[in-house]
Amino acid sequence: MSMETVAGRFEALEGLFFEWDGSFTWANQSQGWQIDGTVYDNGQAIQYVDLHGRGSSEEGRRLLMERLRSLFSVFGELSSLSLMRIPDRTWQDLQGFEKDVCSTNSAER
């Protein structure tokens, strides 16, 4: 998938701000969630996406996961996604990732 394709799909996500250097922010502070990231490509296709997100409350984390599902769907079928958790460098599917994020007591993850 090209950066142009991703940019076009990001436009459909209300409130997401995308820059052509690949950086983006999607947030609603009053609802308690924020996603920041960078899409990296090689000039022809997306190589990977670096994401950082936080939810400041249980409700904020729930909304964060809803937004992440919408964001991830830009890149393809949710069932085919593999996510690497940094710094422990473990691969997870979306279901495992959601379980870890939603079960944590940490406001930032």
Rank of each mutant, 00 (worst) to 15 (best):
E66F: 05
W91N: 14
A27Q: 01
F17E: 09
L51Q: 00
A27V: 02
L64R: 00
G37K: 03
Q29A: 11
M84G: 02
V49T: 04
Q31P: 04
E4P: 08
G43S: 03
W26Y: 13
M65Q: 11
S70H: 00
Q29C: 03
A45I: 12
G43M: 01
R54F: 11
S73E: 10
S23A: 10
G22F: 04
Y48P: 05
W33L: 03
G32Y: 05
A27D: 02
S23C: 08
S70T: 00
T25S: 11
F72H: 03
Q44W: 03
S57T: 00
E98K: 13
S70Y: 01
T25N: 02
R109W: 10
L63R: 04
L16C: 10
A7K: 09
E59K: 04
Q95N: 09
T104Q: 13
R62G: 04
M1D: 12
N105G: 15
W26E: 06
F75Q: 05
G8D: 11
F18N: 00
G37H: 06
L81I: 12
N42C: 09
G22A: 09
Q29V: 01
F17K: 08
S70K: 06
S70D: 02
I35Y: 07
E77N: 09
S57C: 03
Q34H: 06
S106C: 13
W26R: 01
E19R: 15
M3F: 14
H52S: 10
L16D: 01
E58R: 07
Q95F: 02
S70G: 00
V101C: 10
S106R: 14
D88H: 04
G15I: 07
D93C: 10
N42G: 07
F72C: 00
R89P: 00
V49L: 03
Q34S: 07
D100E: 14
S106N: 15
E108D: 12
M84E: 08
S2D: 14
H52E: 11
E4L: 15
P87Q: 07
E14S: 14
E108I: 13
L94F: 15
F75P: 02
S106E: 14
D21A: 12
S70F: 05
N105M: 15
